[in-house]
């Protein structure tokens, strides 16, 4: 397990950077990039959970000790699809907001402040 520490650390760091970008930037496009980085970080974390050094795809004729864990890979496949949908919708919002407001700065969206 110890050899995976570097994968865990770097993937969590990537997710943390993405979170920081998403929460502190004001430009909508940068926020969307931040969300994407965060998702990628979490996906890499999932993959590294199932990683086994020198392992291969879990097909029947391979001894179980050599196979990587297939479940995280299935999860990541689903998570990637969901991530694409979210990004596409977010970009659609960005286009519409640019049309209506003429800016992508979300701190300028103040139609409803009290």
């Amino acid at each position: 397990m110890a050899e995976n520490i570097i994968f865990y650390g770097s993937s969590i760091a990537l997710a943390a950077i993405g979170l920081l970008i998403a929460l502190t930037r004001r430009n909508l496009i940068k926020i969307i990039i931040g969300l994407d980085l965060m998702e990628t970080g979490v996906n890499m974390f999932l993959i590294s959970i199932g990683y086994r050094r020198g392992g291969t795809a879990p097909i029947f004729d391979i001894p179980l000790s050599k196979a990587v864990d297939p479940v995280p890979q299935a999860l990541v496949l689903t998570a990637i699809v969901i991530g694409v949908a979210v990004t596409a919708l977010a970009l659609t919002f960005a286009v519409r907001i640019h049309e209506k407001y003429g800016t992508l700065d979300i701190s300028k969206l103040r139609e409803m402040k009290w």
Binding site: L35, E39, L109
Partner: peptide, 19 residues
């Protein structure tokens, strides 16, 4: 304007949350 503003705020927080 209002719908887009609410929608995009929800989207940002919602996808951070689900990630």
């Amino acid at each position: 304007k209002k719908g887009l503003e609410g929608g995009v705020k929800y989207l940002i927080l919602g996808s951070v949350g689900s990630t």
